[in-house]
Measured scan of single mutants.
Amino acid sequence: EPIEAIAKFDYVGRSARELSFKKGASLLLYHRASEDWWEGRHNGIDGLVPHQYIVVQD
């Protein structure tokens, strides 16, 4: 079951695997890939989301 998150800041992906998004964007998170990253989805694209840039919705 994906988790919803909201972007705290704009983020520009630094590689093809990283998602880019704007502050306030809604993201879906699948699972924690590491301490710093989530596997997630934004605008229909799957990729990595940096933990420091999002607020996970409970």
Rank of each mutant, 00 (worst) to 15 (best):
residue 1 E to N: 14
residue 1 E to L: 02
residue 1 E to H: 03
residue 2 P to S: 15
residue 2 P to M: 15
residue 2 P to Y: 15
residue 2 P to L: 15
residue 3 I to S: 04
residue 3 I to L: 14
residue 3 I to P: 03
residue 3 I to D: 04
residue 3 I to K: 11
residue 3 I to A: 05
residue 3 I to Y: 03
residue 3 I to F: 09
residue 4 E to H: 15
residue 4 E to K: 11
residue 4 E to A: 10
residue 4 E to C: 05
residue 4 E to P: 09
residue 4 E to V: 09
residue 5 A to M: 02
residue 5 A to G: 08
residue 5 A to T: 07
residue 5 A to L: 01
residue 6 I to C: 10
residue 6 I to Q: 14
residue 6 I to V: 14
residue 6 I to D: 02
residue 6 I to T: 13
residue 6 I to F: 13
residue 6 I to L: 08
residue 6 I to M: 11
residue 7 A to N: 02
residue 7 A to M: 01
residue 7 A to V: 02
residue 8 K to T: 12
residue 8 K to E: 09
residue 8 K to C: 09
residue 8 K to Q: 12
residue 8 K to F: 05
residue 9 F to P: 00
residue 9 F to N: 06
residue 9 F to D: 14
residue 9 F to K: 14
residue 9 F to E: 14
residue 9 F to I: 08
residue 10 D to Y: 04
residue 10 D to R: 04
residue 10 D to T: 10
residue 10 D to G: 04
residue 10 D to E: 10
residue 10 D to C: 06
residue 10 D to W: 02
residue 10 D to A: 10
residue 10 D to K: 04
residue 11 Y to A: 02
residue 11 Y to C: 03
residue 11 Y to Q: 02
residue 11 Y to S: 03
residue 11 Y to N: 07
residue 11 Y to W: 04
residue 11 Y to R: 06
residue 11 Y to I: 02
residue 11 Y to D: 00
residue 11 Y to H: 09
residue 11 Y to V: 10
residue 12 V to P: 06
residue 12 V to C: 13
residue 12 V to F: 14
residue 13 G to E: 08
residue 13 G to A: 14
residue 13 G to I: 02
residue 13 G to N: 14
residue 13 G to V: 02
residue 13 G to Q: 15
residue 13 G to W: 02
residue 13 G to S: 13
residue 13 G to L: 02
residue 14 R to Y: 04
residue 14 R to L: 08
residue 14 R to E: 06
residue 14 R to P: 03
residue 14 R to C: 06
residue 14 R to H: 03
residue 14 R to K: 06
residue 14 R to D: 09
residue 15 S to N: 14
residue 15 S to W: 10
residue 15 S to H: 15
residue 15 S to A: 11
residue 15 S to L: 13
residue 15 S to Y: 07
residue 16 A to L: 10
residue 16 A to W: 07
residue 16 A to R: 11
residue 16 A to K: 13
residue 16 A to F: 05
residue 16 A to H: 09
residue 16 A to G: 13
residue 16 A to Y: 05
residue 16 A to I: 05
residue 17 R to C: 07
residue 17 R to P: 10
residue 17 R to Y: 14
residue 17 R to L: 09
residue 18 E to Y: 11
residue 18 E to I: 10
residue 18 E to Q: 12
residue 18 E to C: 07
residue 18 E to T: 10
residue 18 E to F: 09
residue 19 L to S: 02
residue 19 L to G: 01
residue 19 L to A: 03
residue 19 L to I: 11
residue 19 L to V: 11
residue 19 L to H: 08
residue 20 S to R: 06
residue 20 S to F: 02
residue 20 S to L: 01
residue 20 S to V: 03
residue 20 S to D: 14
residue 20 S to A: 07
residue 21 F to V: 03
residue 21 F to C: 01
residue 21 F to I: 06
residue 21 F to T: 01
residue 21 F to M: 05
residue 22 K to Y: 08
residue 22 K to A: 13
residue 22 K to E: 14
residue 22 K to H: 09
residue 22 K to P: 07
residue 22 K to T: 12
residue 22 K to G: 09
residue 22 K to R: 11
residue 22 K to I: 04
residue 23 K to A: 11
residue 23 K to I: 04
residue 23 K to W: 03
residue 23 K to L: 06
residue 24 G to L: 03
residue 24 G to Q: 06
residue 24 G to C: 06
residue 24 G to E: 11
residue 24 G to R: 05
residue 24 G to F: 06
residue 24 G to D: 09
residue 24 G to K: 08
residue 25 A to W: 06
residue 25 A to G: 11
residue 25 A to H: 14
residue 25 A to Q: 13
residue 25 A to F: 13
residue 25 A to C: 11
residue 25 A to T: 13
residue 26 S to W: 09
residue 26 S to P: 12
residue 26 S to T: 11
residue 27 L to V: 08
residue 27 L to D: 00
residue 27 L to N: 00
residue 27 L to C: 06
residue 27 L to I: 12
residue 28 L to V: 13
residue 28 L to K: 14
residue 28 L to E: 09
residue 28 L to M: 13
residue 28 L to P: 03
residue 28 L to Y: 11
residue 29 L to K: 00
residue 29 L to I: 14
residue 29 L to G: 01
residue 29 L to W: 00
residue 29 L to N: 01
residue 29 L to A: 02
residue 29 L to Y: 02
residue 30 Y to M: 10
residue 30 Y to G: 06
residue 30 Y to A: 06
residue 30 Y to I: 14
residue 31 H to G: 11
residue 31 H to L: 07
residue 32 R to P: 07
residue 32 R to C: 04
residue 32 R to Y: 03
residue 32 R to D: 00
residue 32 R to I: 09
residue 32 R to F: 03
residue 33 A to P: 12
residue 33 A to V: 11
residue 33 A to D: 12
residue 33 A to T: 05
residue 33 A to Q: 13
residue 34 S to N: 13
residue 34 S to R: 12
residue 34 S to F: 07
residue 34 S to C: 09
residue 34 S to D: 14
residue 34 S to M: 09
residue 35 E to S: 12
residue 35 E to C: 09
residue 35 E to M: 13
residue 35 E to Q: 08
residue 35 E to H: 10
residue 35 E to R: 10
residue 35 E to A: 11
residue 35 E to Y: 05
residue 36 D to I: 08
residue 36 D to E: 14
residue 36 D to Y: 04
residue 36 D to G: 13
residue 36 D to R: 09
residue 36 D to A: 13
residue 37 W to C: 05
residue 37 W to T: 04
residue 37 W to V: 06
residue 37 W to N: 04
residue 37 W to I: 07
residue 37 W to F: 07
residue 37 W to G: 02
residue 38 W to Y: 03
residue 38 W to H: 02
residue 38 W to L: 00
residue 38 W to S: 02
residue 38 W to D: 01
residue 38 W to T: 01
residue 38 W to V: 01
residue 39 E to T: 09
residue 39 E to S: 08
residue 39 E to N: 13
residue 39 E to W: 07
residue 40 G to M: 01
residue 40 G to P: 01
residue 40 G to A: 14
residue 40 G to C: 07
residue 40 G to I: 00
residue 40 G to D: 00
residue 40 G to Y: 00
residue 41 R to Q: 03
residue 41 R to D: 15
residue 41 R to S: 12
residue 41 R to P: 01
residue 41 R to F: 15
residue 41 R to G: 06
residue 41 R to N: 15
residue 41 R to E: 03
residue 41 R to H: 02
residue 42 H to R: 09
residue 42 H to G: 11
residue 42 H to E: 06
residue 42 H to N: 06
residue 42 H to M: 06
residue 42 H to L: 07
residue 42 H to S: 13
residue 42 H to Y: 10
residue 42 H to D: 04
residue 42 H to K: 08
residue 42 H to P: 00
residue 42 H to T: 09
residue 43 N to P: 01
residue 43 N to L: 15
residue 43 N to D: 15
residue 43 N to Y: 03
residue 43 N to T: 08
residue 44 G to P: 00
residue 44 G to A: 12
residue 44 G to D: 15
residue 44 G to V: 04
residue 44 G to T: 09
residue 44 G to R: 07
residue 45 I to G: 12
residue 45 I to M: 09
residue 45 I to W: 15
residue 45 I to T: 10
residue 45 I to A: 10
residue 45 I to P: 02
residue 46 D to R: 06
residue 46 D to F: 03
residue 46 D to S: 10
residue 46 D to T: 06
residue 46 D to W: 07
residue 46 D to N: 09
residue 47 G to H: 00
residue 47 G to N: 01
residue 47 G to L: 00
residue 48 L to N: 06
residue 48 L to R: 13
residue 48 L to M: 14
residue 48 L to K: 11
residue 49 V to Q: 00
residue 49 V to S: 01
residue 49 V to D: 02
residue 49 V to I: 09
residue 49 V to C: 05
residue 49 V to W: 00
residue 50 P to Q: 05
residue 50 P to A: 12
residue 50 P to V: 02
residue 50 P to Y: 03
residue 50 P to L: 08
residue 50 P to M: 07
residue 50 P to E: 03
residue 50 P to G: 11
residue 51 H to K: 14
residue 51 H to S: 05
residue 51 H to I: 05
residue 51 H to E: 03
residue 51 H to Q: 15
residue 51 H to G: 11
residue 51 H to V: 06
residue 51 H to W: 05
residue 52 Q to E: 11
residue 52 Q to K: 10
residue 52 Q to M: 14
residue 52 Q to R: 12
residue 52 Q to V: 06
residue 52 Q to A: 12
residue 52 Q to I: 11
residue 53 Y to D: 08
residue 53 Y to E: 07
residue 53 Y to W: 13
residue 53 Y to T: 07
residue 53 Y to A: 13
residue 53 Y to L: 13
residue 53 Y to V: 08
residue 53 Y to G: 13
residue 53 Y to S: 12
residue 54 I to E: 01
residue 54 I to G: 02
residue 54 I to T: 08
residue 54 I to S: 02
residue 55 V to A: 14
residue 55 V to I: 04
residue 58 D to H: 04
residue 58 D to P: 15
residue 58 D to R: 11
residue 58 D to G: 11
